[in-house]
Amino acid sequence: MFTGIVTDVGEIAAAEGAQGTLKRLRIHSSYDPATIALGASIACGGPCLTVVAVGPREGGCWFDVDAAAETLDRTTVGDWKPGTRVNLERSLKIGDELGGHIVTGHVDGVATIVAKEGITGGDDPWGPTARFSIKAPHALAAFIAEKGSVCLDGTSLTVNSVNDDMFSVLIIPHTLSVTTWGDRQVGDKLNLEVDLMARYAARLADARRAE
């Protein structure tokens, strides 16, 4: 379980395995290797992946994760290569501050950035904010609500507006500087996880209609 609050930006150091089957990724991070156990769950760019190896390096650690066929089919992980930067979040501990919203790391599909608009930051020392217009897969559009929560590339965000399968999010300067959002451009693909409550509410409604 996660919150969508990014705690580090890692970098893919190595990627091995055939496309569409099992892919092993080595990720460089600033995390302390002593705090990462084998079998730990880390949200990597959105998907929850299991640590299968870990070791120290200068400035932090490296850790390996395996992405299976389902993950490769439903996320952007299959496109990751050495040099790709990914948002990272350690799993939630009891007593941690819940700063975002409940995120499972189970990606529902891939969305696409269709527009990016810079907004003047005024005297803000972090610089300008940015508004992104994003196209969701048609089957997931109904789960996205104005002022609701959505997780994109592992980041908890508030939906500003919705129009059919299009929605927008506003990224503040701090988030642009400490996540991969500062690098995002039109045409980029994003791992999308819809709000957990919306998912179960829809499933309950379907069950009631079936009755």
Rank of each mutant, 00 (worst) to 15 (best):
M1P: 13
V6N: 11
V9H: 13
V9L: 02
E11H: 08
E11R: 14
I12E: 08
A18T: 15
Q19K: 14
Q19D: 04
T21K: 15
R24M: 01
L25N: 04
L25S: 09
H28D: 05
Y31S: 00
Y31M: 00
Y31F: 13
D32G: 06
D32M: 00
P33M: 03
T35Q: 12
A37H: 14
G39P: 08
I42A: 08
I42R: 03
I42Q: 06
A43W: 07
C44N: 15
C44D: 08
G45S: 11
G45M: 01
P47K: 10
C48A: 15
L49A: 14
V51M: 06
A53K: 14
V54F: 05
V54T: 15
G55N: 12
G55M: 02
G55I: 03
P56N: 07
P56S: 11
G60L: 02
G60N: 09
W62E: 04
D64Y: 13
V65D: 13
A67Q: 05
A67R: 11
E70G: 06
E70L: 00
D73V: 00
R74Y: 04
T75I: 02
T75Q: 05
T76W: 01
G78T: 13
P82F: 07
T84N: 07
L88V: 09
L92G: 10
I94P: 02
I94T: 14
D96K: 11
E97M: 04
L98R: 12
G99C: 02
G99F: 04
H101P: 05
I102W: 15
I102L: 15
V103N: 12
G105A: 05
V107Y: 03
A111N: 12
A111E: 07
A111V: 05
K116Y: 00
I119K: 15
G121D: 06
G121C: 01
G122T: 09
W126V: 00
W126E: 01
W126G: 06
W126P: 00
G127I: 02
P128M: 01
A130Y: 10
R131E: 04
R131K: 13
R131P: 00
F132L: 03
S133G: 10
H138I: 00
A139G: 06
A139S: 10
A139F: 06
L140C: 05
I144N: 08
S149M: 03
V150D: 09
L152S: 11
L157F: 12
T158A: 02
S161I: 00
V162I: 04
D164H: 12
M166S: 09
S168Y: 02
S168A: 13
S168E: 12
I171F: 03
I172C: 06
P173R: 09
H174I: 07
L176T: 10
T179D: 01
T180P: 08
D183R: 15
R184G: 03
V186M: 05
V186D: 06
V186H: 14
G187Y: 10
D188K: 09
D188E: 02
L192W: 12
E193Y: 10
V194P: 09
D195C: 02
L196W: 15
M197E: 05
A198I: 01
R199S: 07
R199L: 01
Y200E: 00
A201W: 05
L204F: 14
A205Y: 06
A205V: 09
A207T: 07
R209A: 08
A210Q: 15
